[in-house]
Nucleic acid binder design. Structure first.
Lengths: 211, 211
DNA sequence: GTCTATAACCTGATAGAC
DNA sequence: GTCTATCAGGTTATAGAC
């Protein structure tokens, strides 16, 4: 979505296009500083428009933030709900869920930071119960089914689901901190390293569940 | 450390005491907004002193931030290095490491957010290679030993160590987001819930490693 | 729809009294 | 060592021209 924001100073006069470009740039800026730290000036400058456009199209900074969050939540819910978790055995269903979840992050690396900021700075105010349940329920259901069938070890499905998310996203949020563990110059977000993280995380999640 | 900052408007005239109180209050404020989002005014007001004290004792906001981070890093390194990971078998060493790690967070719940902010906002600038290696190396070594002895499954010790940290801290960073998964009114940071997270996380980490 | 100019406010940092 | 007063720069948001 916002992986490469196009810089253009051309006066487009296309409302929907401008709104979309603002959303992309805002997502990146909110991922860096959250609602509190984001600067409307920086968002506007990045796509070659003036601050006024933000207030014209989204009312205020908070309105823009809500729009960004809603889009991000919708994306997450959509791709997780695509997966048919009931017709395959728990182990494979979990593999599919975690894989799809990490694929989403790889496409849009702003997501983990945005949701972290939302929890810390805004106490989940703009997140909402329905969004959380839509995202976590598939994981919880697969774990419950796995325990019942004896394929998974006994555990608390809620805690374990939350920890699974942690395994998936921590790497993306802390890559600048932990980069020193790898040889100097290694780019933890390169295609190879991302693929390696995906593979290791999927295997570790499955292993953490098996009886 | 800063779990309960004492509010006191008494003019103490004790430099070390004041510095300590500023550090505690600053840690809490930096945990909420990072170096960028923290407000010196808020830090000062919380302990009943004026902003000037911050600049007198720490030079500038960045100096205060560095002092907070150094103290937090020292705490982490100290408690992890206390554990003798070589004289017990890998599974038990990992159990001890993860347990101690989460115990630190339970005592000072600001730590996970501070290190997250450091990675996202400052790109790990104030973290440093030595700190990261001191914290992660024990985990990596235990995993390597476990793989060699055949007790642990084959995996990449670096990626898996990073994911383990994610399992430990995600719960604390996202408790405001995921609280809706539990019955309304449940306090995810209550003593019982913290103990439950600790127990579930330790078991899940060990399970994620076993062959 | 988009821009320029500006209002109203906030924040880090300094100077100087006590 | 601590406080009060204040400045300079930055930030959200609005008004009005085009």
């Amino acid at each position: 979505m916002a992986s490469s924001v196009k810089k253009s100073a051309v006066t487009t006069r296309d409302a929907e296009a401008t709104k979309g470009r603002i959303l992309d740039a805002a997502e990146e800026e909110f991922a860096k500083g959250g609602l509190l730290g984001a600067r409307t000036e920086a968002i506007a400058a990045n796509i070659g428009v003036t601050k006024s456009m933000i207030f014209y199209h989204f009312g205020d900074k908070e309105g823009l933030y809500q729009a960004v969050l809603e889009r991000a939540i919708a994306l997450r819910i959509r791709s997780i709900q695509k997966i048919d978790i009931h017709s395959i055995e728990p182990k494979d269903a979990m593999r599919a869920l975690v894989g799809a979840f990490i694929d989403d992050i790889v496409v849009n690396q702003n997501l983990p930071a945005i949701f972290f900021y939302e929890g810390i700075q805004n106490k989940g105010k703009y997140y909402g119960q329905i969004a959380i349940e839509s995202i976590y329920r598939p994981f919880v259901e697969v774990i419950e089914r796995g325990i019942k069938s004896g394929q998974f070890r006994k555990c608390d499905p809620l805690h374990v689901s939350v920890n699974i998310m942690g395994m998936c996203v921590f790497y993306f949020c802390h890559h600048e901190n932990v980069k020193h563990l790898w040889p100097a110059g290694t780019d933890l977000l390169s295609k190879d390293m991302r693929a390696q993280h995906r593979s290791e995380a999927v295997e570790q999640v499955v292993a953490s569940l098996l009886a």
